[in-house]
């Protein structure tokens, strides 16, 4: 593995290796000295063309805990905003000696361009590209879910896949890179996925994806999923007629108090709530649901560092010639 661009490229073995490595990284994060020397002398550049403090600090913490040098390159206010091309930026990073570039970009495929052209030799990690993918988010979701399922079953999580698990992903699938990465990864790991959304927020061609599709959240909940992942709904979608009003969206596809009350039914007693954040409380999820003990949101954030440590370690520890 030289780059992490998409979860579609991962075999079950690759995915489990990343999750297992993340388990060991998580153990380090529980220690007093939360630092490993594995990437000493290596340089990670966080190249963020889109603001995302959450993802950026997660990658930064991950790289630093592996003793890598971290350079944060925010495109805003830099030469990029003065019209510098991605190619020139990449070649600059190459000249600086970047061993890995963690890239967040509003254009789908920008990480592919970095990885596939001869502009730069560094390992490329996709930290979210347009409405394409966000592979480390899906990996941390899978990691969080795997730990939860192991805890319920009383079995070790290391080495396990997600066979038999059922995950419902709810919301704006059309514009969600998180949904795409999760569909490929969760199904690769053996889980069953159901997408729930208004038809306007499902991609054309979704019927060819390896998952079920439903317009009815209550029906999906009746199927007793192991996890329900709520996606953020951006209010500006309302103006583009994807749905008539936020109130109607919330009533039909939100996890409001009434719907959350069903989580006390016996079939849903172990069901957890995932959300990639940031949450829009009162729209796709109520505060009661978000703050409940079913919510894994903060665990997801903590696990994000472990998963990103694993990815950086696996991509960077060996020099290219031996990778």
């Amino acid at each position: 593995m030289k780059h992490l661009l998409s979860t579609r490229d991962l075999t079950p073995g690759d995915a489990i290796r990343i999750l297992d490595t993340a388990e060991e990284m998580a153990a380090v994060n529980d220690r007093e000295v939360r630092k490993l020397p594995a990437l000493r002398g290596r340089t990670v550049v966080n190249l963020f063309f889109e603001d995302s403090t959450r993802t950026r600090i997660s990658f930064e913490a991950a790289a630093k805990r592996l003793s890598a040098d971290v350079i944060n390159f925010a495109a805003k206010g830099s030469s990029v905003s003065k019209g510098e091309s991605l190619k020139d930026t990449a070649q600059t990073l190459e000249a600086i000696g970047a061993d890995a570039v963690v890239i967040r970009h509003s254009a789908a495929g920008a990480p592919h361009r970095l990885a596939m052209t001869d502009w730069i030799n560094a390992a490329v990690v996709n930290a979210g590209d347009g409405t394409h993918e966000h592979p480390t988010q899906a990996l941390l979701d899978a990691f969080t879910l795997r730990r939860h399922l192991s805890k319920v079953a009383g079995t070790p999580s290391t080495g396990a896949d997600l066979a038999g698990a059922h995950v419902v992903i709810v919301g704006d699938i059309l514009h969600s890179r998180v949904a795409r990465s999760n569909v490929w990864l969760l199904t690769t790991l053996g889980a069953r996925v159901t997408l729930v959304a208004p038809p306007t927020l499902l991609p054309f061609g979704v019927e060819q994806w390896p998952c079920a599709v439903s317009y009815d959240l209550d029906e999906a909940l009746a199927d007793a999923p192991d996890a329900v992942m709520m996606l953020r709904v951006q209010a500006e979608r309302m103006n583009a007629s994807y749905f008539p009003s936020t109130a109607e969206y919330s009533r039909l596809w939100g996890l409001g108090d009434e719907r959350f009350a069903r989580f006390s039914e016996p079939e849903l007693k172990d069901t957890v709530i995932l959300h990639p954040g940031p949450m829009v409380r009162g729209l796709e999820i109520s505060s009661v649901a978000a703050d409940s003990d079913r919510s894994q949101v903060l665990r997801q954030v903590a696990n994000g560092v472990s998963v990103r440590m694993a990815v950086l370690y696996l991509l960077m520890s060996a020099k290219e010639s031996t990778r």
């Binding site: 579609r8 789908a108 495929g109 590209d129 347009g130 409405t131 394409h132 993918e133 890179r177 795409r180 991609p203 054309f204 061609g205 979704v206 060819q208 994806w209």
Partner: peptide, 18 residues
Amino acid sequence: AQMNEGAVSAVLGLPGWP
């Protein structure tokens, strides 16, 4: 729109040209 709207655009996350 960035590419043909279809199975490939759905996967690539590029706005479709139907």
